[in-house]
């Protein structure tokens, strides 16, 4: 594992901790998209099906279980626990999951057919596509609230940085490993995923540089 990959994983873990902290500190779920969390839970559950059939390393298994467990916990909090349940604004979080799920499933089936993938690989491919767009509901909620809370802003920043660091990891691996397996589907999705954050990054850094409140143009 190289430094970019490790930094990417840590950025991902960090983003989840920040979201949990944000819920705990603010004692509300304002501006948090439950739909994005649900998409991420589907991403993790479909990608990490291999947990059931093989063991790679303690680090690998621990991270996978951490991602699934923490995302499930966040969803449980917002759906069923007070004060999150009553402060979560369903009407602002109106993204329809099937608009992401169905195209990703169709794309994954086509990709798997072409590449001769089996059952687990099909779901793995589906999760790669779905992860690329999983942040969309959260970005839509953010647009509607306009002013972005500090911790929510940091959460999205570290979540975006995670896939960006993975891109650096792939470049590093391609240069340093002799028999590196190039997966262009993963590359393309990684670029799309990171690009979706570009606009957010721009306003995030601008607010950090100039100070004041962090708001998005409407």
């Amino acid at each position: 594992m190289n430094i970019f990959r490790f930094a990417g994983d840590m950025s991902h873990v960090f983003s989840i901790i920040i979201l949990l902290l944000r819920l705990h500190v603010a004692k509300n779920a304002n501006g948090v998209s439950l739909k994005t969390q649900e998409l991420f839970l589907i991403v993790f559950c479909t990608r990490y099906l291999d947990l059931l059939i093989r063991f790679i390393s303690l680090y690998n298994s621990a991270m996978k279980i951490l991602y699934i467990g923490s995302t499930a916990a966040i969803i449980h909090m917002i759906r069923y626990r007070e004060p999150y349940r009553s402060t979560y604004d369903r009407s602002q979080d109106s993204f329809r999951l099937e608009f992401a799920l169905i195209p990703c499933l169709v794309l994954a089936m086509i990709t798997s057919l072409i590449r001769g993938f089996g059952f687990i690989e099909l779901f793995w491919t589906f999760s790669i596509y779905l992860e690329a767009v999983a942040i969309l509901p959260q970005l839509i909620v953010l647009q509607r609230y306009s002013v972005v809370e500090n911790l929510t802003g940091h959460y999205i920043f570290f979540l975006g940085a995670y896939r960006g660091l993975y891109i650096l990891n792939w470049i590093y691996r391609a240069y340093t490993e002799k028999h590196y397996h190039h997966d262009y589907v993963v590359y393309a999705c990684g670029f799309v995923q990171t690009a979706l954050y570009a606009d957010f990054f721009y306003y995030y850094f601008q607010s950090k540089y100039y100070g004041g409140t962090f708001s998005l143009p409407t």
């Binding site: 994983d9 991902h12 690998n60 072409i114 590449r115 397996h181």
Partner: peptide
Amino acid sequence: EEWDKEKDEL
């Protein structure tokens, strides 16, 4: 095309 069975990325 083979799936990268050794893939340990998250």
